[in-house]
Deep mutational scan, measured.
Amino acid sequence: MSGIALSRLAQERKAWRKDHPFGFVAVPTKNPDGTMNLMNWECAIPGKKGTPWEGGLFKLRMLFKDDYPSSPPKCKFEPPLFHPNVYPSGTVCLSILEEDKDWRPAITIKQILLGIQELLNEPNIQDPAQAEAYTIYCQNRVEYEKRVRAQAKKFAPS
């Protein structure tokens, strides 16, 4: 494992614990031996107030490669969400998460999670990743928002 990646992720964890947006979660997972795995984080993004996503808490896994922060983490909703920019596998399609697009090593975990929260309610229809959600979003916004509200209710924190 890269010392650069681990040191950056340790800084990220410290900064997150000191200050993070209300309702968001970002925690490194534990290895079988109980030690912390900084390369694999369990996160959760709350649906934004005043949107059909409100009330939901959407679980996301963030996986970092050894060359982080040169390369972005892979962000994957578990379980996958109904959304035009979420692949059926759950992987998020967002330009700041793509090395050859808008990724920059200075982007923080907090910025990534806030960017994904923004994307939930403002899909990028130029870059669809899920045919069904994309089609319904474009053709029947009322039905799309109904499905999103049902999903938010399903993923409401207990």
Rank of each mutant, 00 (worst) to 15 (best):
M1Y: 07
S2K: 05
S2G: 15
G3K: 10
I4L: 08
I4F: 08
I4N: 06
A5G: 14
A5C: 15
L6N: 13
S7C: 10
S7A: 01
Q11I: 14
Q11Y: 13
E12R: 02
E12A: 00
E12C: 00
E12V: 03
R13L: 05
K14V: 09
W16V: 02
R17Q: 03
D19F: 12
H20M: 00
F22W: 04
F22Q: 03
F22S: 04
G23I: 03
G23V: 00
G23R: 04
F24W: 05
F24I: 06
V25A: 10
V25G: 06
V25D: 10
A26C: 08
A26K: 05
V27P: 08
V27G: 08
P28F: 05
P28C: 01
T29E: 13
K30M: 09
K30T: 07
N31E: 11
N31Q: 10
N31P: 07
D33W: 07
D33T: 04
T35F: 00
M36W: 00
M36E: 05
N37K: 13
N37L: 10
N40P: 06
N40R: 09
W41M: 07
E42G: 11
A44P: 01
A44H: 07
A44Y: 15
A44S: 08
I45L: 06
I45H: 00
K48T: 11
K48H: 08
K49A: 13
K49V: 14
G50M: 02
G50V: 08
P52S: 13
W53P: 04
E54M: 12
E54Q: 12
E54A: 09
E54S: 12
G55P: 09
G56E: 01
L57R: 12
F58G: 04
K59S: 12
K59C: 13
L60K: 04
L60M: 12
L60F: 15
L60S: 06
R61L: 11
R61T: 13
M62G: 03
M62F: 14
F64I: 11
F64N: 06
F64M: 15
K65H: 12
K65T: 15
D66L: 12
D67Q: 10
Y68V: 04
Y68M: 05
P69H: 02
P69W: 06
P69S: 02
S70L: 14
S71V: 05
P72W: 03
K74T: 15
K74L: 15
K74H: 15
K76N: 15
F77P: 01
F77E: 03
F77M: 04
E78C: 07
E78L: 10
E78T: 10
P79K: 14
P80L: 08
P80H: 12
P80M: 13
F82S: 00
H83Q: 03
P84C: 09
P84S: 01
N85I: 03
N85A: 08
V86T: 00
V86L: 04
Y87N: 02
Y87L: 02
S89Q: 15
G90D: 05
T91Q: 13
T91H: 15
T91N: 11
V92I: 07
V92R: 02
C93A: 05
C93P: 00
C93W: 00
C93H: 04
L94N: 04
S95Y: 06
S95R: 01
I96M: 08
L97C: 15
L97H: 11
E98P: 11
K101S: 13
K101L: 13
D102N: 08
W103D: 01
W103P: 00
R104Q: 04
R104D: 06
R104K: 11
P105M: 09
P105E: 10
P105S: 11
A106G: 11
A106L: 07
A106S: 14
I107A: 13
T108W: 14
T108L: 15
T108V: 15
I109R: 04
Q111F: 15
I112Y: 01
L113F: 06
G115M: 04
G115L: 00
G115K: 00
I116M: 15
Q117R: 11
Q117K: 08
E118I: 10
N121Y: 09
E122F: 11
E122T: 14
P123D: 01
I125S: 09
D127M: 01
D127Q: 00
P128N: 03
P128R: 11
A129P: 03
A129T: 02
Q130Y: 06
A131Y: 11
A131M: 06
E132Q: 09
E132A: 10
Y134M: 09
Y134P: 05
I136K: 07
I136H: 07
C138L: 07
Q139C: 10
Q139R: 13
N140Q: 13
N140H: 09
N140S: 10
N140A: 15
N140R: 10
R141S: 08
E143T: 07
Y144K: 02
E145W: 07
E145H: 03
E145L: 14
K146F: 08
K146G: 12
R147K: 13
V148C: 12
V148G: 02
V148Q: 02
R149Q: 13
R149I: 13
A150N: 12
A150Q: 15
Q151G: 06
A152R: 01
A152S: 08
A152V: 04
K153Q: 09
K153H: 08
F155N: 15
F155H: 09
F155S: 10
A156M: 09
S158Q: 12
